[in-house]
């Protein structure tokens, strides 16, 4: 419950403060957000699977974000930045869909 409120607070803060993303962060932020979303949906799934562990969640959240940003950074250095971000987003989105499907099966048995 508290994390949900935290999410709301973050969204409101973003709406109020109109943050400008620094230029060096711009390629990585969207990827990081998608990676974090993947971790969140994975957490919901593991709650329903009965294997949720908040320590693992925190670590997976942070490592997801870091690894995703790192891969895109590496792609940028190799000159395939946009293709790499596309690839990362595709993989993460597939995982999100798989997690959502598992959650749906748990909740609705369908």
């Amino acid at each position: 419950m508290i994390p949900a409120i935290g999410l709301l607070v973050g969204v409101l803060l973003g709406l109020i403060l109109h943050p400008t993303v620094p230029l060096w962060l711009q390629p990585y932020l969207p990827i990081a957000v998608v990676a974090a979303l993947d971790a969140v949906f994975g957490a919901f799934r593991s709650v329903l699977d009965g294997i949720f562990n908040d320590r693992i969640f925190v670590i997976s959240f942070l490592s997801n974000v870091l690894v995703a940003a790192l891969i895109v950074f590496l792609g940028d250095q190799l000159g395939v930045g946009s293709q790499m971000s596309t690839g990362v987003v595709v993989v993460l989105t597939m995982r999100i869909f798989a997690n959502v499907a598992a959650i749906r099966r748990h909740l609705l048995k369908a």
Partner: peptide, 8 residues
Amino acid sequence: LGFATMAA
């Protein structure tokens, strides 16, 4: 996460 999403 919420903040970063809005920023993005």
